[in-house]
Amino acid sequence: MIETRGVSKRYGDTLVVDDVSLSIPKGGFTSIIGPNGAGKSTLLSMISRLTPMNAGSVVVDGMDVTRTPGNVLARRLSILRQDNQTSLRLSVRDLVAFGRFPHSGGRLTAEDLRHVDEAMEYLQLHEYRDRPIDELSGGQRQRAYVAMVMCQDTDYVLLDEPLNNIDMRFAVDMMQLLRRAADEKGKTVVVVLHDINFASCYSDHIIAMRRGRPVYQGAPEQIIRDEVLRDLYEMDIRVHEVNGQRICVYFRMG
């Protein structure tokens, strides 16, 4: 379980994350949604100790993230942010293999190689295996980075906007894959998402944030509702049930 206790982050005069105390259950797929500037990404990066917090603490399975040694935490929790290095002269396979660094410290064992191959398989990267990542398209590169965190094989996998820069087909593939990681491997997947329809169709649990605070939490049926979304995004959103999935329509109103 991930627990945040009174976590705050301030940039200058603005409070980006405001005294957030919440818990994310172990197992399953949790999405964090909300309008721009709600503090979703900042919260995720404080949970994963990438950004220092001004107040509060974060505990993952009993470990305080700011006090636990980095390499211990790196075997339990992985994080992928949006903007990653794009100009590296490094093959896809070498990048994916870095995911094993917390386990083997740079010297790959047979076990590590198995994880690398499995992650490449999982993200359909085999044909790009030896391609340098600076020659890949945005979507291919994104998949290579996701393969790296999958290969890290942690109980908790945190992703900030993993669907950015990738087309519909790969977006669906990516969500299926993350869903499978939760279902088949028992991983806890926490994702910041902009597309509320993806959040609606794939999540077990949704956290909705606005102005630095979580304002709604619950199962998709409780969050993906006209009145909740209207309040959250301050716009007219209609939820329709299509083939058993709750789909939000907001593109053209009136």
Partner: peptide, 21 residues
């Protein structure tokens, strides 16, 4: 020496991989 290649991936990824950056 083992950290050098990891560091070139950027701070966030180095921290994610457990380096005391």
């Amino acid at each position: 020496r083992r950290y050098l290649d990891v560091l070139s991936l950027g701070r966030d990824i180095a921290v994610n991989l457990g380096v005391a950056h």
